[in-house]
Computed example of a mutant assay.
Amino acid sequence: MDLEDIRKHYEKMSDNRFIKLLTTNAHGLRPEVYEIIKKEIKKRKLSPDLFEAVLAQNKEYSLEEIEVYAELIRKLPCPICKRKELKLNGTICYTVTSFILFSSSRKEVIIACPDCLNKENKKGIISTALFGWWAIPWGFLKTPLYIYRNFKAKKENDLRNSNNTLKDFTLEHIGEIETYKQDKKMLSYIIENYEL
């Protein structure tokens, strides 16, 4: 697309769609598009923080910088139990459900306190152990693998620092975190409504 087409495309978007694009899907934009975005933000009288989200998604980060952003997430109340005492971390919960000839597998990223993460992995293990085996051949193949993955994920739930799952989540949502870093309610919304 040439720059004029891009400008017209942004102009046609609703505010909500434009904001969503800037906070979640601005990675890899050409630098010459930045000026168009700045003008559109100003024209719509939107928060200048939205442009910071674009820049955040188009920057290389050191591990230390990712940790700073992850710490914003870690300080939020747990989205499951609502407690504030324990710092949040992340896990991936794996489940397999089988029905004779059909097997359904799911992996879900969860951001919560370590206690809730452990409970979620435990539920994944129990559910998979009870309902994962019953399909031929995938149930027999996936069930032990997913049980193992839950046990492995569970080992990282109680780490004192951000675990790899939380770091990956942080990097994936860096634009939204940058935009709403002063808004704990919006940050909580992001971690509660995340879908893999």
Rank of each mutant, 00 (worst) to 15 (best):
S162I: 03
A129P: 04
F131S: 08
N89G: 06
Y69T: 03
D115I: 14
W134Y: 15
L63Q: 10
G175T: 08
L86W: 13
Y148N: 05
Y180N: 02
S127I: 02
K181G: 03
K185A: 06
L63C: 00
L130T: 13
T170L: 13
N89V: 03
E108V: 12
K119W: 04
K59Q: 10
I80T: 14
V96R: 05
L159F: 12
K154C: 00
Q182I: 15
C81E: 01
F140W: 14
L196P: 00
I191R: 08
N121E: 11
A129T: 13
C93V: 15
K122C: 02
A153T: 12
A70Y: 00
I92C: 03
S188M: 09
I190T: 06
Y189K: 09
Q57D: 05
Q182K: 15
S104A: 15
Y146H: 06
S162T: 09
V96W: 07
C78V: 04
I177P: 00
P79Y: 13
E192K: 15
C81A: 09
F151L: 07
K185L: 00
L76P: 06
N164V: 13
A153H: 04
F131Y: 12
P144V: 02
Q57L: 07
D158I: 12
F151C: 01
C113M: 03
L196S: 12
G90V: 05
S104P: 13
G90W: 06
S127L: 02
I110W: 02
R160S: 00
L101D: 08
L76A: 11
N157G: 06
Q57M: 14
A70L: 05
E60N: 04
S162Q: 11
Y180M: 11
C81S: 02
I66Y: 08
I125M: 09
L141V: 15
V68P: 03
L63M: 05
